[in-house]
Write a protein that binds this DNA or RNA. Structure first.
Lengths: 266, 266
DNA sequence: CGAAGTTTTGAGGACCTTCAAAAGTTGTGG
DNA sequence: CCACAACTTTTGAAGGTCCTCAAAACTTCG
């Protein structure tokens, strides 16, 4: 994986959703990137810092988090290799969240100005990046539900399943196992729990034979029961890619959306 | 406000952030829209329904929410007039959340296929819509913090301030007052609390003379103290508009983002 | 092998929930 | 304009989930 750093992996991720034209592909690959390496447990960006570059995560595992004055921390997202981290900040001057490595990570960073220029010259890529942030937003919504309305055990189950699916999508699982790159305290910060209660929630899942842990590897022993407990439905992560309006599905644009139609478009 | 329904208000909202070319403006205004009216307490879209149209909220107040099997509900966002609700679903086949009116509302709905076509022919508009969803995502992050790490009273204070600022931005406040269009149970669902505890949190804020309520109107009595209690900083809503990469600020793209640079771009 | 970090355990307490009912408000129809 | 029904807000009391503090067992790493 040495040599000239390049975004081929991001390209293939975007194209798995929807093919790009050769021109768009070339433009994306021509983007000047800089490979940067970070040790584990380092801040890539601090909350409140000016944002100048967005990061494509080539390898490793990072989280985005926000803090409170009293030191409390809420992790708002995790990112696996292949994710564009912090596309959030491409249009924004100051980062509203920090980015933190949980394992040694390598990142391809891109100047935000370059991304914006690319987007304005290639609508296709603009759409692909837009879709990327829509998926992020859908995951945020699910996390709000996790934190707000699911019990500790349920939320933990849901989070573990999300991590499993996302690792699986990038080939980092074997069977029903994956290497959990976080501490229990990190998981707690993602779910708005204390570390102690996170520990007890995991014990509860182990006690029910839903999961098993050995050192850092986490294996899902009873997928069906865990999915059922968590009310987990992976569609919110939209692994399938965006709708293709070139070939609209049968039900597309049929009828009103439920309201009383009182006007017609131009 | 009768006559041919049109998106002029959305246009001006987008342009407040960043001017559009005349061509882009025309394309946006040419979008076929349909005005639809909904009574209060109606579902515009149910969770799990196919998404065919996105909605611009012309007047009224709506929330987006997700449910659990046991009937628990988490509100994931509120929307004031001028918001594009459910742009989220433009690229997605099935809605992962419901949209619900809290007051009588009128909506201009646009076929998703039309939005996608517009975005692919006008990068400027693509960028504007992208920015819109980035702001939504930033608000989601703040809500996750609200629900996960802020206490009930703090979270309530934060939510009320967010509503105040968003109403203010569309001219729906007078002084430090606004009409709260939700019940306490709705606020509770937004913060992951019970209605009873929401009531007690509001009583606590009233007791400290931070807010005052009379019928449906909510007034902020001590803005400074409320902001301090909530650790509220409105920048997360990005009222100021996106960065303009045509005129990058002085610190733009200076130096590395913190890592050890080991490669250079093409 | 020692030091630092992580997981686990226990006990007590705080925050928030649930259930239930009363008081107050809003909307509807006669 | 009043009466009634439905909804919303408020209050009380009991209980559960989750938190804090603290220390021990275990793991990881230099």
């Amino acid at each position: 994986m040495t040599g000239k750093p390049c975004l081929a992996r991001y390209l293939s991720r975007l194209e798995a959703r929807r093919p790009l034209s050769a021109a768009a592909r070339d433009k994306l690959m021509a983007l000047p990137v800089r490979r940067e390496e970070f040790a584990a447990h380092r801040h890539i960006i601090h909350e409140g810092e000016p944002t100048t570059r967005s990061c494509f995560l080539e390898s490793g595992f990072v989280s985005c988090s926000k803090g409170l004055r009293d030191g409390a921390r809420q992790i708002v997202s995790f990112h696996v290799p292949g994710d564009m981290v912090d596309l959030q900040s491409a249009l924004v001057m100051i980062s509203d969240h920090g980015v933190f490595t949980h394992t040694a990570s390598t990142v391809l960073s891109i100047a935000n100005a370059d991304i914006l220029e690319l987007v304005e010259t290639s609508p296709e890529i603009g759409r692909a990046l837009w879709f990327d942030t829509l998926v992020d937003a859908a995951i945020y919504r699910e996390w709000t539900l996790n934190v707000g309305r699911r019990s500790a055990v349920m939320g933990t189950a849901h989070l573990l399943l999300e991590l499993f699916y996302r690792f699986q999508a990038v080939g980092m699982t074997s069977g029903n196992s994956f290497e959990l790159p976080t501490t229990q305290a990190d998981l707690a910060d993602a779910l708005g729990l204390s570390a102690v209660h996170m520990n007890r929630s995991l014990q509860s899942l182990r006690g029910e034979r839903l999961i098993r842990t050995f050192q850092r590897t986490m294996t899902i022993e009873n997928m069906e029961a865990l999915v059922d407990l968590a009310e987990f439905d992976p569609v919110y992560m939209h692994p399938e890619g965006p709708r293709d309006h070139g070939r609209p599905p049968a039900w597309s644009d049929t009828g009103a959306i439920g309201g009383r139609s009182v006007g017609a478009g131009a």
